[in-house]
């Protein structure tokens, strides 16, 4: 299958101290598709995801070699402006972490950082993104209350809105539904399917059925290595590697 890559990873190695967390990863992430990264716990899925927007930089004792291109630009180049790279990507983490401020300010936080001061524009951005994340109706009357008072499911949708407000091109999700109840998960999944037409989405997930439901493209990792990658049909119906077969078949997890 040939496609236009949005993120290109070449020979990426990541070490935490002496321990190697990613071993020579080379892969292309397709543009405007949902890519799912699957694999057993501790295999380096979160690490790979974080390497896409250089969130590994602040970690102590971390060493990175290899290259990651986003839109043909090497993001590990020393001249690159990290904040601009990060702005291109929205991040949803495992558990929602609303910033310690009001609901409104959470969404307006990113735009404000990037220089938007106009009240009207901000109001618009906040409203639009809360609507896209289908949480607007629940919070429109209490935009100035602390975000921490929302339920976990609402918080996760708020975080989605917050990420979308900086107008990213890519959405990274690290098990974004793992802390949510089935209903909330479903709503987030629904969002992803709708957002796919405009955004490149990369999801880490433990739930195979979720990957089957959502993914167009699948990466299977094991112990820091990328074992197999390909379109969802290929991986799920006809995996080439024995290990992938076992994992998908549920022999080990």
């Amino acid at each position: 299958m040939s496609f236009k890559p949005h993120i290109r990873v070449e020979n990426l190695n990541v070490y935490y101290g002496k321990e190697q967390a990613l071993k020579n990863i080379t892969v292309n992430i397709p543009d405007r598709k949902i890519t799912a990264i699957i694999g057993p716990s501790g295999c380096g899925k979160s690490t790979l995801l974080k390497s896409f927007n250089r969130l590994l930089d602040p970690v102590d004792h971390v060493r990175i070699s290899g290259r990651v291109f986003v839109d043909q630009e090497d993001i590990y180049d020393s001249k690159v402006d990290v904040t601009r790279i990060r702005k291109k990507m929205g991040l949803l983490s495992q558990r929602p972490y609303p910033l310690p401020m009001s609901i409104y300010d959470n969404v307006a936080y990113g735009p404000r950082l990037h220089g938007i001061r106009n009240k009207k524009t901000l109001n618009e951005i906040v409203e639009r993104n809360l609507k896209i994340s289908s949480i607007w109706n629940e919070v429109k009357d209490r935009l100035n209350t602390p975000a921490s008072r929302l339920s976990i499911g609402q918080q996760q949708r708020l975080c989605l809105a917050r990420g979308l407000a900086v107008e990213p091109e890519i959405i990274l999700g690290d098990e974004p539904t793992s802390a949510l109840d089935p209903k909330s998960s479903q709503r987030i999944e629904q969002r992803f399917i709708e957002l796919k037409s405009e955004y490149t989405i990369v999801l880490v997930t433990h739930i195979l059925r979720q990957a089957k439901r959502l993914a167009d493209y699948v990466l299977f990792m094991y112990l820091g290595e990328l074992v197999e990658h390909g379109s969802a049909e290929e991986i799920f119906s006809n995996p080439k590697q024995e290990m992938t077969k076992e994992y998908i078949g549920g022999t080990f997890s």
């Binding site: 969130l55 990060r86 702005k87």
Partner: peptide, 14 residues
């Protein structure tokens, strides 16, 4: 929590 810093950094904050 470190995730809170990550959330802000991920939005492009310095």
């Amino acid at each position: 929590p470190g995730e809170m810093r990550e959330a802000s950094l991920a939005l492009g904050a310095t």
